[in-house]
Design a protein around this nucleic acid. Structure first.
Length: 438
DNA sequence: TCTGGGGTCCTAGGACCC
DNA sequence: TCTGGGGTCCTAGGACCC
């Protein structure tokens, strides 16, 4: 291999590691992070993994056992994770070019260097993140993204790798057949439960067998994605970033939806929620410099065990593309108007913005624009930027914070439960950690 | 009497990922 | 009582156009 190829940096147990950054006493303890509404486990420390706790398990099902085992639980603190993620990405990007943020805790990069220099850069980069923000990261290097996922996984599992693994090393001396023979197909990036079952049905159990199957025949039989995975396993890169790199990524639809903390059945309350979710979605819309042309809102009853599911949804097309929270929140409310059945207990709601266009290519002349105060949306955005999200909002009390942490979301009973929330140390003045020297 | 074929756009649904 | 919340890509089918 002449050059380093694809580099994948992925934080270890990211949410759990973030929780430990400002609470060093959590290090070495079994820790789980729960999804919104404290629903199910979405992240675990190594110690919690060792206790056999599985990701996705509903918390109420394992709570008793876990507490007996002294497992510590935290509600998800996305402000903290988002803030640490930005810092981590920023450090990583100083070491290698073409960063593509793939998720909150991982990014692809490209190494222009030869094998040994790539190895050294990855070791340095890993150390810099650990020193800079206290998050352990694993690094995998390979000719393709799919193989980089495998080397990254390897780096996480094998202490001898010290957090950095190159395909160059694993592929010796048999071109990787030995390693790929030890990996079950369902562990390959892009192969989900469904596809794994199909593959096992035709006798393909390990990554090596998939790599050696006929890509054209597999494409005909299954899908073009599977063909790409096979080629990637052979070392031919064919999965690219759709939109170039880094901050150029723009979503083509924006969704904000939540479970309610408790069931809701009044139209007014659901309209409040829709209004708040629309404002959250607007902030994301503005951040990526887009306007939307269609606003959809929906709500549905029931949870996983609900007997009769019931849903309401509606869409509103805007007269002009907009990122104005006043217009979009009103559209979200009106999309559901008259569609709420009072006897139904709704469990969740959401707002979806579609038909997104580039804001710069859609500057409406002032006199042709919508008939609202053009300053209001911008003013709201400025207040949010300075004082934090949802300090000021539109229309009604829903979702507006009270003073201080305890009552901050007290304005609405339907907001989600986060009973075990840690401090948002890096984004809130009033939650900054205190350090004492003795 | 003859009744095409290629292209685009949109939508819904499936599968997958973190 | 209690089971995230975002996204992506691909495919098929329908409407419409020339």
């Amino acid at each position: 291999m002449a050059t380093g190829g694809v580099v994948l940096a992925d934080a270890n147990n990211f949410f759990a590691s973030c929780e430990a950054v400002f609470h060093p006493e959590l290090a070495g303890k079994p820790l789980v992070v729960l999804s919104n509404n404290d629903g199910c486990v979405v992240a675990r420390s190594n110690e919690a993994k060792r206790l056999g706790i599985v990701n996705g398990t509903p918390w109420f099902m394992i709570r008793e056992t876990a507490e007996r085992d002294h497992v510590i639980a935290r509600s998800s603190n996305y402000e903290l994770y988002g803030s640490l993620s930005r810092r981590m990405m920023s450090i990583l990007s100083t070491f290698l070019p073409d960063q593509e943020m793939y998720s909150i805790d991982e990014c692809f990069m490209r190494s222009p260097w030869d094998t040994e220099r790539t190895r050294q850069v990855c070791v340095d980069m890993r150390r810099a993140v650990l020193q800079g923000i206290g998050i352990p990261v694993s690094v995998g290097v390979a000719p393709t993204k799919t193989l980089a996922k495998i080397t990254n996984h390897w780096a996480k599992r094998h202490e001898t790798s010290h957090g950095v693994t190159l395909w160059h090393d694993l592929a010796q001396p048999d071109g990787g057949t030995g390693v790929l023979s030890s990996i079950p197909v369902e562990d390959i990036w892009g192969i989900g439960r469904r596809m794994a079952r199909h593959l096992r049905g035709i006798g393909i159990r390990q990554a090596a067998q998939l790599r050696d199957s006929d890509p054209v025949a597999m494409r005909r039989r299954f899908s073009v994605q599977l063909e790409r995975t096979i080629l990637e396993l052979r070392g031919f890169a064919c999965i690219y970033d759709a939109d170039g790199i880094g901050e150029n990524i723009r979503n083509s639809a924006l969704l904000c939806s939540r479970m309610f903390g408790e069931p809701v059945n009044s139209e007014e309350t659901i309209a409040q929620a829709a209004s708040v979710y629309a404002q959250y979605a607007c902030r994301r819309l503005q951040r990526q410099h887009s306007l939307c042309t269609m606003v959809s809102a929906f709500c549905s009853s029931g949870n996983a065990r609900s007997d009769i599911p019931s849903a309401a949804h509606g869409s509103v097309t805007l007269p002009d593309p907009s990122d104005d929270p006043v217009i979009i929140a009103a559209a979200a409310r009106s999309a559901l108007h008259g569609k709420i059945i009072p006897s139904v207990r709704y469990a969740r709601a959401g707002v979806l913005l579609t038909g997104l266009v580039d804001a710069d290519s859609f500057r409406t002349l002032p006199t042709l624009g919508a008939d609202t105060d053009p300053g209001l949306g911008a003013a709201l955005e400025q207040v949010s930027r300075r004082f934090g999200p949802m300090r000021v909002g539109i229309g009604c009390a829903a979702g507006i914070r009270g003073k201080g942490r305890a009552s901050e979301e007290a304005g609405a009973r339907w907001t989600m439960k986060r009973n075990m929330l840690s401090q948002r140390c890096t984004t809130r003045w009033d939650e900054m950690p205190t350090v004492r020297a003795s």
